[in-house]
Design a binder for these strands. Sequence first.
RNA 1: GCCCCAGUAGCUCAAUGGAUAGAGCGCCGGACUUCUAAUCCGUAGGUUGAGGGUUCGAUUCCUUCCUGGGGUGCCA
Length: 607
Amino acid sequence: MANLDPTPLGTHFMTSLKQILTDIVAEAFEACGIDKKYGAVEVSTRREMADYQCNGALAAAKPYKMNPRQIGEQVMSKLQESSADIFSEISLAGPGFINLRLNNDWLANRVQSVAADESGRFGVEPVADPKMIILDYGGPNVAKPLHVGHVRTGIIGESLKRLSRFLGHEVLSDIHMGDWGLPIGQIIVEMEDRDFDRVYFDADYTGPYPEDPPVSVQELAEIYPTASGKSKVDEEFRARAQKATSELQEGRPGYRALWQHFMTVSVADLKKNYGSLQVEYDLWLGEADVNDLINPMVDQLKKDGFAYLSDGAIIIDVKDDADKKEMEPLMVVRSNGAVGYEATDMATIVQRVRDYDPDFVWYVVDGRQQHHFKKVFRAVYKSGIANPDKVSLEHTYNGTINGPDGKPFKTRDGGVMSLQVLVEMVIDKARQRLAEIDSTAQYSAEEQEDIAQKVGIAALKFSDLVNHRTGDYIFDLERFSSFEGRTGPYLLYAAVRNQSILRKAAEEGLAAGTILPPAGDEERELQLKLLELPDLLDFAFDQRAPNHLCDYAYNLAIAFNRFYRAHHILNEEDAAQQASWLGLAQLTVDVLKHVLYLLGISVPERM
RNA sequence: GCCCCAGUAGCUCAAUGGAUAGAGCGCCGGACUUCUAAUCCGUAGGUUGAGGGUUCGAUUCCUUCCUGGGGUGCCA
């Protein structure tokens, strides 16, 4: 095989099997006088016929005015000359699919080289050109408890963070709290009406204020919905709330002191609740953190002619000449002087560009905000706050979790189901399941509880992440806490059984050895699946879609479970074969656990 | 009105323009003296909402409808 030009395609060309095969087939196309771009190789969709396939002969037929099968024959003949050591079978099928089956020795050799990688990267090289990515997800509102709706943004964002970071990108996650808008004003007014400590509401008093928060997060959880409800029906209340919001933003000391208390109790609660889902943040910034950037930004926008007064509000036109549809302007300051999330989102971009100079900002936020982000992105690009050639602002939106009526989920009494309650229900279900299983009875109470936590969280997270990011789906507690079939616990179980073998092997003094060519179809499929990892990670990253990680983890677990059934490792008498299988089992569990880690799911030692 | 998103097996969901559209659940039927049966194997189940178009090839791209959901300058 001739030395190929280094390819700029793909980020893991050194280790991606797909890329290696594409390079080989592309060279064969070129040798036939056909553009190498037609040499793209994919995992075969017909696994009983091939491991990998190239469809390029079909695509090349027209421009080269040739019969696709004729092209296929020529390419095959070149491949047979150049790569007989790699392929055990090269065939042409149907209208012109080039089917490739890998030589078993070559296959095992590849797997062995991945197993021998002691860096913990499974042969996946960090990207050559790391990007700086800011991931904005979670977006909880201060004083509002997390509910089922926060599940998706939190765990999808967390997974994208872990994936991007593993691939070698520089990533910062920011919770971006909603802590500066009308809800805060509504709570302030409601608290004033309820005669909370007067010092906070006395405009002439400037401090000091009490150190202890006047409210708990539980009280806030009750006060906010009440205030929000009043605001909808009571115009006077609403006007007062708007005024309070505006005064808070302008710096009224008593309101600022109250706000600080809200933050203290809310952040502690958020850390606890997101922590239970293993959703973690690098930055705990929020809308309030950009307050001081807003006035200068608005002044500049006015000075540059992008922002102007209209009906008492300050707006920016974001309509594009290419738009056929209507596109109302973005309102950056309301007529009462308060700012909403349009201004804070814009100012946050000012801040992020200034402080981090990112290549990407991904907003993992509900898809219903698409219009909002479109306007914000246009406004910042148009006004020069962000340079479209430098930073890509993406609304990496997620769908909603709906009730049976197709609308965002509500409990039977019309309320929202809190995240904490949901998590506790799922873990409790896991406890019950655990109690039914004999093997765990001997474990300590602590270990059993740890297992229940991991099983419950795995069930919850996997059943959400397995759905495509952008799609809505219907909330089903049974499904969230199901432990059978295509679920989180299925994956844990596969990993745990594997670990059990390795533990027993270690006790018997058995060590992993060189991985040999597959002994059967089950093992062959497992080896092939392991080699798909780099391409899978690239693909999931490109699509910003963790469901592909779920898909891979599940298929890897299936492949392992079949292998497990077909070959009894510990009873194997051939020492080299046994050592090979131990190596394969070790690699499988390492890869499986790592992909689960990228999903934000932890694996217990045993269960 | 305008815009966005969706419509795939009984149900919940997958499917980077490729061959015979896949899983899980549910249904029916098999496999535990064997490294953990939270497992494995098998059967049945489809006009991919409808029509048109582009393409050698369409669930995927374009277009017109139908149905559902969402959004649409002073809530976020």
